[in-house]
Design a protein around this nucleic acid. Structure first.
Length: 803
RNA sequence: GCCGCGGUGGCGGAACGGUUUACGCAGAGGACUUAAAAUCCUUGACCCGAAAGGGUUUGUGGGUUCGAAUCCCACCCGCGGCACCA
């Protein structure tokens, strides 16, 4: 009988749900294993083939762990809030709320059809008020703890789309959608104080088992620098001659202080000086204003400048380098970042590439103070031209010089605070209230949560600095939680990355109306055992998840993983990216490969296995479907093998031994997410079984196949082999002792090149092997009478004759 | 520019100090069939040779080693991330 996958796959998907095959018992589980995949944001075009590869890849691992005896929890949900979804809604002119209902349905259909062992009863969507109620609650806790605060900040603004853009939507200074030059706008924004956690986020990386590339990216993003803050007193400040002014700079190279030939300050700092009344020339004023208007793309927190031609202008002010009382000019330049350090630097052109470039351009002095090669020497070395510090090494000089000039040792991080507010519609309203009378921001009362996102017609960005919610008095008009007077709600919504920073917690307890998660469940199931997702989230989502968990720990809302300071994820692996024709799949490029047609034609099992067979899960690659028939042939052969009942009654010692080796290999491969080689081993085992059928080996094959082809394996297990309960609840075959091989193939090399091979007994010693090798006809011919100089013998492998 | 990953048959990929190309796809030849599909069997890098056999080959060039795709150095190319962080 032919295997009818269409009917059979549907049947088992329904029965697994009925039988709750993949629902863990949260409270009694003895060996919890939290198998998490990054939940998708439901785009309108549906799941693409790369997503299917990731999700089924994660599922293979989860099913493997379940069969190894773990109580696996593998939840699924949708990250449906956010600008991506909203932009698409805007484009097609449909309301995000109605659109999300459609995409939700389509996504869940697809996610069911791929045959994953999801715990469907715990599914969640971030736009569900029962979910974002707790997103808002977390915001409030952050506020109460002083981790959420307001400050003025530049945001990215697209003048054509009339909206702010997320940092990720600014591509080299232009709007991702319309390529209009993005400008900066100075708005008051909500921030999360992630910088308070810089050190913990950094040191935690040492104890978690995450893909190395992700850890490196995070270390770099946090960017710890050890240096010093040094004060320079200013002279010639126009209009301020009677007062004593100074500028503080941050440097990692205080040892080069003697080489400082000018001070450079950011345009923002210069603007501040102007604002407090320092008089500057018209040219300087014009330069500063021009810099501040120039668009700049942004990082995670406050915006930073991009590279490019450095410009600058002499401010008219000078500074005194207190180590040698030298008077040096203060320049204003766009190469100095305002959001890092103090927004001012001491420039040492002889020992810093950027300062050198600037000094060259404006013809400023270059003074060498460290011995070393080249025009610009950025390494450490022996100090020269440095007064009494002459001759010291850079290392020794650093501390001494800082002390000498009364500077302060300072650790500086690159990390900026997390800008959390968005002037958009499709997100959780930030649950804060401003009261004029009380003159402060207050959180909404927790019993009033959620602050519902109103269902309004006009959801498009307003073109002002405000969210569309600011046009809806029924929304923003409210009463003050403290004085009861008239008050106004915050009309911004929060960043979608806040939704996804805690979803793994809610999965454990999605129907809990009293708490965001019950402490018992959190303690039992966390940290997440295995998390698999894309490396594009290396420094966004994957940093926020850690930060929010640590913050919730500090507020005593969570208490798992105390040893690691509240690291939420033990193990993270990033999957490779599947591209099509060399490009990332996207609707605009028209290269999105949909899984639907493949599943219809070949079935979910074939699609799952084919995608797994392409390459290791952690590798990516270009998608093509030329090889899928190899998998369907294999599955058809498996089906045929088991349909022949005789095969499961027989016994063959050699096959059994072979199966043991396969079990070892496949178990190891799956553990390392190398499903491609696992499948290859299963194919070889099947060939062996077809030659010499054997009962136990047959079962081992079927069980090892179960995570990869769950429907087919279940059909054979229950309908053909007549087992009562699911194969997915059975245990993984155990590798028994392997019968020792009695012989092996001895490879015979001459000068490292293989010339011959011979089957011989496994324990042959060097002497016998040499005699055997030298007696071979081929070898005699090759040697042509030459005598071996040396013999290298590797037991059970080869013999190398050196002449 | 910096960081990370990678470069192996016509293709996806194995091997990660010891027989390069496991497994699969595509190709070629054959069997079955009236025919096709499906299935099964054989074959499978390049060059020289009728054959036996020999030589070459893991991006390029060096090095270490009895032996290198694998380790080291330099370079070239591709992909991803970060980009004036003082």
């Amino acid at each position: 009988m032919k295997y009818n996958f269409q009917k059979i796959e549907k049947k088992w998907q329904a029965r697994w749900q009925d039988e709750k095959t993949y629902e863990p018992d949260f409270d009694t589980a003895k060996a919890p294993f939290y198998n998490l995949m990054m939940f998708p944001y439901p785009s309108a075009e549906g799941l693409h083939i790369g997503g299917v590869r990731t999700f089924t890849g994660v599922d293979v691992y989860g099913r493997f762990k379940r069969m190894q005896g773990f109580n696996v929890f593998e939840p699924i949900g949708l990250d449906g809030f956010g600008i991506n979804s909203e932009n698409y809604a805007l484009k097609i002119g449909e309301h995000p709320a109605t659109l999300s209902k459609k995409t939700e349905k389509n996504f869940y259909r697809q996610l069911e059809e791929i045959g994953n062992g999801f715990a469907w009863e715990e599914k969640l969507e971030t736009y569900d008020p029962e979910y974002y109620k707790w997103t808002q609650w977390i915001f409030i806790q952050m506020f109460k703890r002083g981790l959420a605060y307001r400050k003025k900040a530049s945001v990215n603004w697209c003048p054509k789309c009339l909206t702010v853009l997320a940092d990720e939507q600014v591509v080299s200074g232009q709007c991702e959608r319309c390529s209009t030059k993005v400008i900066k706008k100075n708005l008051e924004q909500w921030f999360f104080k992630i910088t308070d956690y810089a050190e913990r986020l950094l040191s935690g990386l040492d104890v978690i088992d995450w893909s190395e590339n992700i850890k490196t990216a995070q270390r770099h993003w946090i960017g710890k620098s050890e240096g010093a803050r040094i004060r320079f007193f200013l002279v010639d400040v126009p209009g301020q001659e009677d007062k004593k002014h100074f500028v503080d700079i941050f440097t990692t190279r205080p040892d080069t202080l003697y080489g400082a030939t000018f001070i450079a300050v950011s345009p923002e700092l210069a603007k501040f000086w102007m604002d407090v009344g320092w008089q500057v020339s018209d040219e300087v004023r014009a330069y500063v204003m021009k810099c501040l208007e120039t668009p700049t793309p942004a990082g995670v927190g406050a915006p930073t400048k991009t590279s490019g031609e450095k410009t600058g202008i002499f401010s008219g002010i000078s500074a005194v380098n207190s180590i040698n009382n030298e008077k040096i000019p203060v320049w204003i330049s766009d190469y100095v970042l305002s959001g890092y350090g103090t927004g001012a630097i001491m420039a040492v052109p002889a020992h810093d590439e950027r300062d050198f470039e600037f000094a060259r351009k404006y013809d400023l002095p270059i003074k060498k103070v460290v011995e070393g090669e080249g025009d610009v020497f950025t390494g450490d070395g022996k100090l020269i031209n440095s007064g009494k510090f002459e001759g010291l090494s850079s290392q020794d000089a650093k501390e001494k010089i800082v002390t000498h000039v009364g500077g302060e040792q300072k650790i500086q991080y690159r990390l900026r605070d997390w800008l959390i507010s968005r002037q958009r519609y499709w997100g959780p309203p930030i649950p804060m209230i401003w009261c004029d009378k009380c003159d402060k921001w207050m959180p909404e009362r927790e019993e009033n949560l959620p602050v519902r996102l109103p269902d309004v017609k006009e959801f498009r960005p307003t073109g002002t600095d405000k969210s569309p919610l600011a046009n809806i008095p029924e929304f923003y008009k409210t009463t003050c939680p403290e004085c009861g007077g008239e008050a106004r709600r915050e009309t911004d919504v929060s960043d979608t990355f806040l939704d996804s920073a805690w979803y793994y917690l809610r999965y454990l307890d999605p129907k809990n109306t009293k708490e965001f998660v019950s402490p018992e469940r959190a303690n039992k199931w966390l940290p997440v055992s295995m998390y698999i997702g894309g490396s594009e989230h290396a420094v966004l989502h994957l940093l926020y998840v850690r930060f929010v968990s640590m913050a919730l720990h500090d507020m005593n809302f969570l208490s798992f993983a105390k040893d690691s300071g509240g690291e939420p994820i033990t193990c993270f692996r990033s999957h490779g990216l599947i591209v099509k024709d060399g490009a990332k799949m996207s609707k605009s490029k028209g290269n999105v490969v949909s899984p639907d047609e493949y599943i219809r034609v070949y079935g979910a099992d074939s699609v799952r296995m084919y995608l797994a067979f392409l390459a290791p899960l952690e590798d990516g690659g270009d998608f093509n479907d030329t090889g899928i028939r190899g998998i369907t042939r294999f599955l058809a052969r498996v089906w045929q093998y088991f349909e022949n009942k005789n095969n499961t009654d027989k016994h063959d010692a050699e096959t059994e031994n072979y199966a043991q080796k396969t079990i070892r290999k496949v178990s190891g491969d799956i553990e390392q997410l190398k499903y491609n080689t696992a499948i290859s081993s299963l194919m070889q085992l099947l060939s062996q079984l077809e030659e010499a059928p054997s009962a136990r080996a047959s079962y081992a094959l079927l069980k090892m196949l179960a995570p990869l082809a769950p429907h087919l394996a279940e059909e054979i297990w229950r309908e053909v082999l007549k087992n009562e309960s699911s194969i997915h609840r059975t245990s993984w075959p155990e590798a028994k002792a392997i019968a020792e091989d009695l012989t092996f193939t001895l490879v015979i090399q001459i000068n490292g090149k293989m010339r011959d091979s011979v089957e011989t007994e496994i324990d042959i010693n060097e002497k016998d092997a040499a005699i055997l090798a030298l007696s071979r006809e081929k070898i005699k011919t090759q040697l042509a009478g030459k005598t071996p100089k040396k013999i290298i013998f590797v037991p059970r492998r080869l013999i190398n004759i050196v002449v």
